[in-house]
Amino acid sequence: MLSLTFFLYFGQLGVLVPYLGVFLDGRGFNSQEIGELFALVTLMRIIGPNLFASFADKSGKSLGILQIGAFLTFATFCSIFWLNSFWGLTIAFGLMMLFFTAIAPQTEVITLGSVRGDATKYSHVRLWGSIGFIVLTVLAGKLIDVFSSEAPIYISGAVLLGLFLVTLSLKEATASEHKSSAADSIWRKVRTKVFIGFILSSTLIQISFGPYYSFFALYARDLNYSGQETGALIALGVAAEVIIFLLAGRLIGRFGVKWTLFVSMLLTGLRWYLLAVAAQFWPTLIVSQLLHAFSFGLIHAASINFIHHYFGVQFRSQGQALYTSIGFGIGGAAGNFGAGLIWQQGQGAELAFTLATGFALLGALLVACIPSRYMPK
């Protein structure tokens, strides 16, 4: 059931991340408004993960937090069917994202507890999230062509209901996974140069994703790709991600977290540069999407491995929450907001992806500066 939870969770992301811009464009929003809405919604990823992780670590009830989050995500999402204004949709999507952030960190904690931190076993469970992303992305792209830009919200509603129902069959992690020591403090871990370097690099990578997450589907449409073709391109990237998840445990074990992150971030920079200068050529888009294996898949697997070993049993939920809220929350919000300002209905696409290249390379540089002896092997 953990595999199915990942399938539905990331399947939901496979609907909204690529196509929320298309949905909002269909509702009459311009690129700046789309970027602002993305940014405001993403800010919920700063508040939510830490709030829910604190409850989970103190109560030892990760599963309960997960189930409540899944139910409230579905309940708040339903309001989107009756809203159309900028602030109405922003508040609705924001509340949905706030509760949605309760799901992934607790699922990660329960999964890592069940596989006892084994990177290979974790990757084999987590890859089902990538499969869900592929299936729902292709389906949503096809339904947009057949019906309209409203299709993503109908698919999302069904997926979120299914996700809540699946969480009801999960089992709680063992109590030992949640034990904490009053003598210890998570801030002792957070204040180190190692964690600061790691979290800053993670934030820079998420900033670099801003143009891709906010506008790739619209970018592909401007390049005369259909919704189905766009879905296939996105699915190709996630298919490459599935393959890398199968290999992630061995790659991290062979090269270590530091160099896995470093090389993956360099390749992420290459990916954005290709989109900036040669996106009009379909082979470029294919290569760019294949690099998603590194820019998301391997970076994510290595980052989760770092969090699991660096924070240990005591603060694993809060460590995961910090990674999500700072990297994906602050970084994602900044990237989405900046992309919205620069995009200018597609006229600023080259500049947006060029800047994304710089942020990815700067993230790689920060990782290179972290002494290897402080990183998990």
Rank of each mutant, 00 (worst) to 15 (best):
A182F: 08
F164W: 13
G346I: 03
F74V: 10
A104G: 00
A56M: 10
A334Y: 11
L168Y: 02
F147I: 00
S264E: 07
S156G: 09
E150G: 11
F164C: 01
Y154S: 07
G60C: 01
V115C: 08
A39E: 06
L361R: 04
P371E: 09
W128D: 00
I65E: 02
F77S: 00
I244D: 10
R188A: 10
L143C: 09
F306W: 11
L218E: 03
V115R: 04
N50H: 08
T354M: 07
F164A: 02
S3Y: 04
S372G: 14
T324R: 00
F296C: 06
L8D: 05
S123N: 11
L4S: 02
T76L: 03
K142Q: 07
L200V: 15
Y310W: 05
S372K: 14
L2Y: 11
P18K: 01
A39Q: 05
T268N: 10
I234H: 00
L8I: 00
F77K: 01
W259Y: 15
L127K: 15
F100S: 08
P152R: 00
R221F: 06
V263W: 03
W272E: 01
M1H: 11
F281S: 15
I286D: 02
I244V: 14
Y310E: 06
F262C: 06
F215S: 11
G319E: 08
A352D: 09
S181Y: 02
A301N: 07
Q12P: 00
K189E: 11
T357S: 09
L298K: 13
E241S: 11
I103K: 00
F29G: 12
L24R: 05
M375R: 02
G269E: 02
F29M: 07
V125E: 05
A75L: 15
T42A: 10
L275C: 03
Q206M: 15
L83E: 06
I34S: 03
G253E: 13
Q32D: 10
